[in-house]
């Protein structure tokens, strides 16, 4: 059994609807290493945001969050220190990428009105509880399925594969110590 996924509290950054993967991980950034690529997240919709976001912050978005390609945008968010994603509606490929990277993500109806930019948000993907600490309002939605919680609790699928003996020992050791993350740039 995986470690429990603890509730997360952080500063909310609120974005709009239909933010696509080209807006978060444009093709020209795919030519760069992770640190440089991460500077391009939301480069057209909110220039300069990557200089402002702090470790532990939470990204809140509207409908159809992450429509587009299989590019591992979640890795860029993790590189920036983003602790969790909340959206009114996720593209399923984008959501799976977050889960498989071990990044908690929760669908919250009306999230972009429930939270305002700069509010302190709490979410608990295990129970479905979410709260706006700035307004003092809390609600509950469907928690994530056990299978998904297990992946997130393990820190994503790569640590699970490392434990199961699929990866070379040296890489597995680094992964399980949290020293590195492996990612792969992809795709159109």
């Amino acid at each position: 059994m995986s470690p429990a996924v603890e509730p997360i509290t952080g500063r909310a950054w609120v974005f709009g609807d239909s933010l696509n993967t080209d807006a978060m991980y444009p093709a020209h950034a795919m030519k760069l290493d992770l640190a440089e690529a991460a500077k391009h997240v939301f480069y057209q919709v909110r220039p300069g945001w990557t200089d402002l976001v702090q470790p532990g912050d939470i990204v809140v978005a509207g409908k159809n969050f992450g429509v587009g390609s299989s590019r591992p945008v979640a890795n860029l968010f993790q590189h920036l220190g983003v602790a969790a994603l909340i959206a009114e509606e996720f593209n399923s490929l984008f959501l799976r990428n977050a889960i498989n990277a071990g990044l908690p993500a929760l669908t919250v109806p009306g999230a972009t009105t429930f939270f305002s930019d700069g509010d302190t948000a709490t979410l608990d993907v295990t129970t479905g509880r979410y709260a706006n600490e700035s307004t003092g309002v809390e609600e509950r939605t469907a928690p994530l399925p056990d299978l998904v919680l297990d992946i997130i609790g393990n820190g994503g699928v790569l640590p699970m594969l490392a434990r199961a003996g699929y990866l070379p020992e040296a890489v597995a050791g680094l992964l399980l110590n949290g020293a590195v993350t492996i990612s792969a740039t992809s795709a159109a």
Binding site: S70, R96, N97, I182
Partner: peptide
């Protein structure tokens, strides 16, 4: 369907995956 590179890596290793 398309899946992210990390998930594809997992399928390569284990041969299976999940769908909602």
């Amino acid at each position: 369907r398309g899946l992210g590179p990390v998930e594809m890596y997992a399928i390569l290793c284990t041969g299976s995956t999940w769908f909602q």
